[in-house]
Design a protein around this nucleic acid. Sequence first.
DNA 1: ACCTGAACACCGTTCAAGT
DNA 2: ACCTGAACACCGTTCAAGT
Lengths: 186, 186
Amino acid sequence: MGRLPRFDRRTVLRAGLDLADEHGLDAVTMQAVAGRVGVTPMALYRQVASKADLLDGLVELLLTEVAMPAAGLPWQDRLGAMAAGLRQVAHRHPAVFPLLLRRPATTRESLRARAAAYRALAQAGVPPDRIASVERLVSTAILGFLVSEAGGRLAHHPRGVLDEDFGRLQDLLAGFIASESGARPG
Amino acid sequence: MGRLPRFDRRTVLRAGLDLADEHGLDAVTMQAVAGRVGVTPMALYRQVASKADLLDGLVELLLTEVAMPAAGLPWQDRLGAMAAGLRQVAHRHPAVFPLLLRRPATTRESLRARAAAYRALAQAGVPPDRIASVERLVSTAILGFLVSEAGGRLAHHPRGVLDEDFGRLQDLLAGFIASESGARPG
DNA sequence: ACCTGAACACCGTTCAAGT
DNA sequence: ACCTGAACACCGTTCAAGT
């Protein structure tokens, strides 16, 4: 007869994310995650296909935490809110955040975030055939900064300096988006 | 009596880099590196303090490969050459390149590259008290793009698309540097 | 001084067995 | 159907021993 499972995939991912937050990515082992869940390591394989699948799941979990901006706001505020939300997630989960750069941006949650960015860029007046390129450049620059900050490359700088840097980066990108909007050569 | 060592740190790092290039970062194990060098794993510990030290050494090795631009060139060409050189290294060593974002930019080779960027920015007319901030923003955006490209987030796009994106990013950053040069508010 | 052999405490993953 | 126990082939690292 079928028994009810005692835990689901979400429970496994939450346990892994908690471990990463508290003790770093190296602490996310199948044995340690299983210990948190309260089962043997082998039981995890019913919920995750492999360790790599578990790590992919952590990235998805991070993306679900990025707050989506209210639909009625002007596009500047929407993009600003997404950037701020992404930065909060980076600060909350610095060990896992760098993995965002290592996975193709084609997962469910990636697509959701990207679709929201596309809508904001369209509203900003970026021509349809330029939206994808502009989004790649903007998201790449933002992620590059946040991963540098979370991953340690900029960790020796005081917080105020990083706040100001991030503000300047956002200003630069806002100017770029404006320059891609409206009339263009050709 | 003292014997002559049969291999040095550089030999260990080269073996590790070759393994990473051919089979990915996960293939860089102490046993595999030792196998390439032709010794037992334990012999490596005379040249590297730990596995983490070995990985740090790989990052340093990558940075030594970045071609330094000729000193006489205009600043635009110098920064362009550094960006192109960095991208070539990223293409040659995609498995190791993402580690660049995870180490504080304070190692010997990091400082050498940064000093060259500082000189170019000074020549561009960026005020001394703005040079460090401008360099952080520019290097962060470039590294973010290159790690995305090397690490797989953008790997599903054709090469031509990525070439064009990279060109646009460079143009944007050149404009940013120009805007930070010469007269500024205050 | 330099390298090895044996060993330790892990790690991800499999498979057959239990309920 | 779901979980466990035992096992396998690894992994980084130590320590004492060999030359």
